[in-house]
């Protein structure tokens, strides 16, 4: 079966603002290469996680797929249809109903002046799906589905009257009321209290089952990715370094960056956390305006050779379904 989303050699470069003097001296425009040639596919019905540290390009990728940003180059194919450069007007007609996004911060993603009921009903109005009593029924039903019961109580509340977890439930309801096929979840639990995170994770999994959803789950938290996702891609400086099932990638990581990332995570178990073996890497990710030549990870890599500084490694399949971009794995 054809994947729901196919991403091919996707790139997004953001121009760097030049100062007045730089413009006069007509210095060349420089670019932040936020996403620099990534290829992956999201299968229908799976949870695909995109993981990495801040600045790796995972959120930019999410925005590209939802088409809140237009790609610089490459291709995004949804359900067999190329939407890479489809104009906003045409996206509004069909794509925006079928692909939805849940943002990280529920304090910022809800309009403070719109009541919960209005916020969830708004997508129905935009697309002219339902009106009047029918619309209200659909909203109440959705509120019930996301666990905001009794729904009549929440219908007339303002976001600031709700807790963080309840707000995120509203954001989920707003995204799902259009019955999308793909839901992009951009770190939906990281702004929430610890005791609320598992509630939202469980809700997302239940709704996925009930509504036949496919998720693109963006996260920096590999333990959460392991829990919720089927497959995962690990990104570093705009590139995918490793891709595969969560079991393969997170239990048997092959790329040195994935290994380092995994071993740096503290474990909520003192004995295990204090005895874990670290793959130590120095420093912090370099500036994406001027990424290192060759393999972008080579300046920090414990295994780097001369080749790594010159040639960029391709993402290669090392075992069925497990892809790694590293020269040391042949």
């Amino acid at each position: 079966m054809r994947p729901l989303v196919e991403v091919e050699d996707l790139k997004k470069y953001f121009p760097v603002e030049r100062s007045f003097i730089e413009r006069i001296l007509s210095r060349k425009r420089r670019y932040v290469k936020a996403v620099d040639g990534i290829t992956f596919a999201i299968r229908r019905g799976e949870v695909f996680a995109l993981a990495g540290e801040s600045g790796c390009g995972k959120t930019t990728t999410a925005y590209l797929i939802v088409r809140l940003l237009e790609p610089t180059s490459g291709r995004i194919v949804f359900n067999g249809r190329d939407i890479t450069h489809e104009p906003e007007r045409s996206l509004r007609r069909w794509y925006r109903r079928r692909v939805q996004i849940i943002f990280q911060d529920p304090y910022a993603s809800l309009n403070p002046r719109m009541k919960v009921g209005e916020a969830i009903a708004h997508p129905l109005e935009i697309h002219g799906i339902a009106e009047g009593k029918e619309k209200k029924e659909m909203v109440l039903d959705m509120l019930r589905k996301v666990g905001l019961t009794p729904p009549e109580l929440f219908y007339n509340k303002y976001p600031h009257e709700l807790s963080g977890g309840q707000r995120q439930r509203v954001a989920i309801a707003r995204a799902l009321i259009l019955r999308p096929e793909l839901v992009v979840a951009d770190e939906p639990t990281s702004a929430l209290d610890v005791s609320i995170r598992s509630q939202i994770l469980k809700l997302l999994l239940e709704l996925k089952k009930e509504l036949n959803l496919t998720y693109l789950y963006i996260t920096h938290d590999l333990a959460t990715a392991y829990y919720i996702a089927d497959r995962i891609a690990v990104m570093y400086l705009g590139k995918i370094v490793e891709l595969g099932s969560v079991e393969d990638v997170l239990e048997n990581p092959l790329h040195p960056y994935t290994k380092a990332l995994l071993s740096a995570i503290p474990i909520p178990d003192p004995r295990m956390s204090r005895t874990r073996r670290r793959v130590k890497i120095p420093g912090e990710p370099p500036n994406p305006i001027n990424p290192p030549t060759g393999c972008r990870f080579h300046p920090r890599c414990p295994w780097a050779t001369k080749l790594c500084a010159v040639e960029e490694p391709e993402l290669r399949e090392v075992s069925p379904g497990h892809y790694v971009a590293c020269h040391m794995l042949k």
């Binding site: 911060d105 993603s109 935009i126």
Partner: peptide
């Protein structure tokens, strides 16, 4: 983000 969300909803 709520402005981005509205855009994503197709407004």
């Amino acid at each position: 983000l709520y402005v981005k969300a509205a855009q994503a909803l197709g407004a």
